[in-house]
């Protein structure tokens, strides 16, 4: 079983993020970067399948600075990595296009991608790639069961329901968070990762599908803020609850 996993090196949206002076891009000076959270589950799932039935896990990263994330995947147990040093922005077509080109000579049974990226939240690259490669696909996958050349999946839909489907291989799955419990990287894993192959493939996209006009802070109504030390804050909260008859 050979599985290709797409892994993005992405800023944590809960760290401090702003808008750059051009008004068209993010300012991420102090943001914490790591493997995109959904991709962490995708990598773990691929490694678990390999450990169970054998095979190979190839991770693909896009971006000039994605080495840390690719090394992390190798340390988790992936076998080799392809780095495409292209800094794409919000245009997911471009990302999918360079990935399609980079893996065109790779034979594979499945491609896994995270459901979406934690920074741009497009939820596009995986399915666009499935379209470019004419692969059967499923998104928001929460369970995977492999039988010969077919894969039985569950995928998350609304209201706590799941949909169960069966796909032939090769296919592409986008992975929902919570599908497994991703492992921590071990010291042994980090040592082993140093001996694993990380191949750089220089590619540029041919198409441009969207153009950023501007970025700005969303207009939001703000909550009434309760300020003070914890003691004052707690007293004010209790007063609000009391007023509404929620505490005695």
């Amino acid at each position: 079983m050979k599985i290709i996993v797409l892994a993005k090196h992405a800023p944590d949206p809960q760290s401090e993020v702003g808008i750059a002076s051009d008004g068209k891009s993010l300012s991420l000076g102090t943001a914490v970067f790591d493997i995109n959270d959904w991709d962490r589950y995708a990598v773990e799932e691929a490694i678990r399948i390999k450990e169970k039935i054998g095979g190979e896990v190839l991770v693909v990263g896009v971006g000039k600075n994605c080495d840390d994330t690719l090394r992390k995947c190798l340390a988790m147990g992936a076998d080799r990595a392809i780095k495409i040093p292209f800094d794409g922005g919000i245009d997911a077509y471009q990302i999918a296009e360079v990935i399609a080109e980079a893996i065109k000579n790779e034979k594979f049974d499945m491609i896994f991608a995270g459901l979406m990226s934690q920074d741009v939240n497009n939820a596009l690259v995986g399915v666009l790639l499935a379209g470019m490669l004419n692969l059967p696909f499923a998104t928001a996958v929460t369970a995977i069961d492999i039988k010969d050349k077919t894969v039985r999946i569950k995928r998350e839909i609304e209201g706590g329901y799941q949909e169960e489907s069966e796909l032939p291989m090769p296919c592409l799955l986008t992975i929902q968070s919570g599908i497994n419990e991703p492992r921590y990287v071990s010291v042994m894993g980090i040592k082993k990762a140093k001996t694993k192959e990380m191949k750089e493939v220089k590619l540029e996209p041919k198409s441009k599908k969207v153009e950023v006009v501007k970025m700005y802070l969303p207009p939001v109504k703000k909550a009434e803020m309760i300020t003070g030390d914890p003691d004052q804050v707690a007293s004010k909260v209790i007063a609000i609850l009391k007023e509404r008859g929620l505490v005695g």
């Binding site: 949206p13 993020v17 993010l26 920074d119 969207v210 501007k214 970025m215 700005y216």
Partner: peptide, 19 residues
Amino acid sequence: FVVSRYVMQGKIMVDLKVS
């Protein structure tokens, strides 16, 4: 033809020109 969407899980908004 310009569309708006959030990025960064709701923290920032972006306007995109699409053909």
